[in-house]
């Protein structure tokens, strides 16, 4: 998929672990892993909003478009 999820980069910058972030977002670690590995087919606005809030970033910092 040409949409790249840079969640792991942002998490490393903020020095936050998956378990902690999942707890703060109110989602399971398994779902966070789906998002991190790029397996997700869709992201809810509510999840994106919570991610931006917790990681103090913009949606563009988490998602990028790369043409194949």
């Amino acid at each position: 998929m040409p949409i790249i999820v840079n969640l792991d980069v942002m998490m490393a910058k903020r020095k936050i672990r998956s378990k902690e972030l999942a707890e703060r977002l109110g989602i399971t670690e398994a779902n966070l892993s789906i998002l991190k590995t790029g397996k997700a087919k869709a992201v809810r606005f509510s999840t994106l909003e919570a991610l931006c809030k917790e990681l103090d970033c913009q949606p563009g910092d988490l998602l990028a478009f790369e043409n194949d």
């Binding site: 966070l32 789906i34 998002l35 397996k39 997700a40 087919k41 869709a42 992201v43 809810r44 999840t47």
Partner: peptide, 8 residues
């Protein structure tokens, strides 16, 4: 179902 499961 797959789309629903892979929606975070």
């Amino acid at each position: 179902r797959e789309e629903n499961e892979l929606t975070v």
